[in-house]
Amino acid sequence: MPPRPLHRSGPDFAHEAAAWRIGEVPVAGADEVGRGPWAGPVVAAAVILDPARVPDGLDDSKKLSAARREALYEIICETAEVSVAFAPPARIDATNIRQATLWALARAAQGLPRAPRLLLVDGNDLPPVGCAARAIIGGDGLVASIAAASIVAKVTRDRLMGELGRLNPGYGFERHMGYGTPEHGAALERLGVCRHHRTSFAPIRLRLARESEAAE
């Protein structure tokens, strides 16, 4: 029998349960993090939850503490099918942030152990996937599998940016995660642009132009 929707505060399993009832399984949720930063990749995740082991406390990753995200990340990876994909700065700069994000979401969905019959995606834009897909605005706060994907993407990217901070001391990537903070701006003034920056983003593009003018 298909699972019944779980009644809980925050995201629930109702969308997935509806798909189960009509045989549209497996159903996956997908989300991304990192569209806005000046540096680092966009990270996308896709998750197929086990209906019998939907973790308690799933929510939009932005609403959770770092410790809670980490704990849920471990539970999700133990109980669900998970795939992660990265759109690096080079791809973002070669296309644009929208296309790079959709590419990463599609890659994440394609990387799942089982091909989903239905992909539920946060937002209003759909990636190019070979299955039915549905965009849900605010989905990371409404749909359990999208919330799980948002947590996986956020934890994965935060860990990666921490490592980039260790390998590129002085930029503070481990603190601002590549976003355009005053600390990040000051680091650019001191150290210049590194290979992890998105050269198509205006603050970085302008910084490179100033460096070029100074060198002439």
Rank of each mutant, 00 (worst) to 15 (best):
G10P: 03
P11T: 13
H15S: 07
A18C: 08
W20Q: 04
I22T: 15
I22E: 14
G23N: 13
P26T: 09
P26I: 06
R35N: 11
A39D: 07
P41C: 12
A44R: 05
A45E: 00
A46H: 04
V47K: 00
R53N: 14
V54Y: 01
P55N: 13
D56V: 01
D56A: 10
D59T: 02
D59N: 15
D59G: 03
S61I: 01
S61C: 12
K63L: 15
L64G: 02
S65Q: 11
S65V: 07
S65K: 08
A66E: 15
A66Y: 10
A67D: 13
R68S: 06
A80L: 11
E81H: 11
V82F: 00
A85Q: 05
A85H: 05
P88W: 09
A90I: 03
I92A: 05
D93P: 00
A94Q: 10
A94H: 02
I97G: 03
Q99V: 07
A100Q: 04
T101G: 06
L102W: 03
A106K: 07
P113Y: 07
A115P: 11
P116W: 07
L119K: 06
D122A: 11
D122L: 09
N124Q: 10
D125E: 15
L126D: 02
P127W: 02
A132Q: 14
A133S: 15
A135T: 04
G138D: 05
D140E: 15
L142I: 06
L142S: 10
V143D: 00
I146N: 07
A148Q: 08
S150M: 11
S150F: 06
I151L: 11
V155C: 02
V155S: 00
T156Q: 01
T156A: 13
T156M: 06
D158R: 08
D158K: 09
R159H: 10
R159T: 08
L160Q: 02
L160E: 03
M161Q: 02
E163N: 02
L164C: 02
L167I: 03
N168D: 12
G170L: 14
Y171P: 04
E174H: 15
E174F: 09
R175S: 14
G178I: 00
H184P: 10
L188G: 06
V193S: 08
V193P: 03
V193F: 09
R195E: 14
R195A: 14
H196E: 14
H196N: 09
H197W: 03
P203S: 05
I204Y: 01
A209N: 07
E211T: 01
E211H: 08
S212W: 06
